[in-house]
Design a binder for these strands. Structure first.
Lengths: 226, 226
DNA sequence: ACAAATATGATAGTAATACTATTAACTTTG
DNA sequence: CAAAGTTAATAGTATTACTATCATATTTGT
C-alpha cells in the first residue's frame, strides 16, 4: 500500500511555478513550511520574507520557485484539487451504483480530511483549511482570466466534470450538474467557516457529518425529476 | 412614491466609520466615487490615494471618514444588506402566501438589480457587482471576529433570519434554514462570477432568470419533508 | 579528476502601499 | 465675528512585493 501511494504524483501545470518545487529539498521546504505558515497567520499576513525566516533561506531564493505569493496560492490550490481527483478516483472506482458513487463524491467535497493526514509530507489538514479560507481569493480578482489560461483551475474543473458525469448517469435530463456541484463545494467551505466565526449564518449541529448529510439530501432531492 | 423612498435611510453601525459619510458632501462623494472606482479597477487595486485623485481631495481627508480600505468595504457591504432588507420588506409585505414570499426572497437573492438603478445617488448595479466579486473578502480574513463584534454583518444576518422565518412557516421541521439561505446567496454570487470567467464550473443558460429558477427549484425541493 | 553548469546564500535596492502627522486655509455656527 | 470644526496641502514612515548582483557551494558530464 505504501508503495502504491508513493508512486502517485500530483501533476501541476508548469505555468504556476518558475522551478518545480518537488525537484529539490529547498522547494519541498518552501511548500511544506509555506502551508504551515499560511495556515497559522493567514494569506494576507503571509509574506515570502516571513517564510524565508522560517526556513532560514533568503526571500530571493523563494522567488526563484514562485513568481509571487499569489501564484504560490494558485499552486497550493491546484495541488489540493489534484489530490481530490485522486481521492475521488480511489473512492469511486469499482463502485457499480451511481448513487453510491455520488454519495462518496459529496462526502469528499463536504467533509474534513481525517485519516491520511500526511501525503508526500504535505499536511493535508492544514492545506484543506487553507483552501476553505483562502481558495476563493484565487479567482476573485482581476487576474482570473490569465490564471485560467495558465491552467490554474484545471484540476478543479476536472473534478467537477467527473462528479457531473455521475449526476448525468443518475438523471440524464438534469440541466445544471456543474452549478449544483460548485454550489455544494463552495457552500460547504463557507458553512465550515461560518460555523466557526459567524454561527448565525449557518445551523451548526453537534451530530457527526451533519454538513455532508445536509448537502447529500439537497443534491439528491434537487436532481430528482419531478 | 419618490417621497416615500426619500424618507428611507439605510442604518449603518457606527463602528464601521470614523465620521458618518452621509453627513457631508465630501463623505457622499467618497462613497459614490469609491463604488465607481472599486467597480472599475477591483478592490485589490483600489487605494485611498487613487480615490483622492478622482475626487480631487487628499488621501488624508478620506482617512478621516474611514479607518482603512477594509473598513470601507465593510461599510459598503453593510449598506448593501441594509438595502436588501428594505427591498425584502417591500417585496413581501402584504403577501399572504409564504411560498410567494419565499419566491420573492429567492428572486432578490439571486437576480441582478435591474430597475431602481439609483437610490440616494448610489449606483446599485455597480454596488451589487462589488458585493458579488468582493464581499467574501469582508469575512475571509483574520479580522472577522472583530468585524463581527463591530456589527459589520448585522444586516446580512437579519436578512438571512427574515428569510429563514419564511422557510420555517412553510416547513417548521426543516432543520437547516440558514445554511440553505446562505448557500443560495453565496452560491448565486459565485455562479454569476463563474458564468463570466470560469464557464466550465457552471451551466450558463441564455434563458432569462435561469439562476433564480435553478435556486428556487433547489430550495423548494430541499425544504419539502420526505 | 576537474571544468562547467546550476543552485543557493548574502546583501542591497526600488516603487508602491497603507497609513500618520502637521499646519494652514476655509466655512459654518452661536 | 470669533470660535469651532472641516478640508487642503504636504511630508513622512514602516512594510510589502518584488528585482538585481555577486559570491559561494554543489552537482554533473567527460
Amino acid at each position: 500500500m505504501k508503495n502504491l501511494i508513493a508512486s502517485v504524483k500530483i501533476a501541476i501545470n508548469s505555468q504556476l511555478y518558475l522551478k518545480d518545487p518537488e525537484s529539490s529539498e529547498l522547494g519541498l521546504k518552501i511548500v511544506h513550511k509555506g502551508i504551515d505558515l499560511i495556515n497559522s497567520i493567514g494569506f494576507e499576513e503571509f509574506t515570502f520574507r516571513k517564510l524565508g525566516l522560517e526556513i532560514h533561506s533568503p526571500e530571493a531564493s523563494i522567488y526563484r520557485y514562485f513568481e509571487s505569493k499569489h501564484k504560490f496560492l494558485l499552486y497550493l490550490n491546484a495541488w489540493y484539487w489534484g489530490w481530490m481527483e485522486y481521492r475521488l478516483l480511489l473512492a469511486t472506482s469499482n463502485v457499480v451504483s451511481a448513487e453510491k458513487r455520488l454519495e462518496k463524491a459529496v462526502f469528499l467535497m463536504t467533509e474534513g480530511v481525517e485519516n491520511d493526514p500526511n501525503f508526500h509530507g504535505v499536511n493535508l489538514v492544514k492545506l484543506q483549511e487553507i483552501v476553505v479560507a483562502e481558495a476563493s481569493k484565487t479567482f476573485l480578482n482581476r487576474k482570473v482570466d490569465q490564471a485560467n489560461q495558465d491552467g490554474a483551475y484545471q484540476s478543479y474543473k476536472d473534478f467537477v466534470s467527473n462528479v457531473a458525469s455521475i449526476i448525468e448517469e443518475i438523471n440524464p435530463t438534469y440541466k445544471y450538474p456543474c452549478m449544483l456541484i460548485t454550489t455544494v463545494v463552495e457552500g460547504a467551505h463557507q458553512q465550515r467557516f461560518f460555523a466557526e466565526h459567524l454561527p448565525r449564518l449557518t445551523n451548526k449541529q453537534s451530530k457527526p457529518h451533519y454538513l455532508s448529510k445536509f448537502y447529500m439530501d439537497l443534491v439528491l432531492k434537487t436532481i430528482k425529476s419531478n
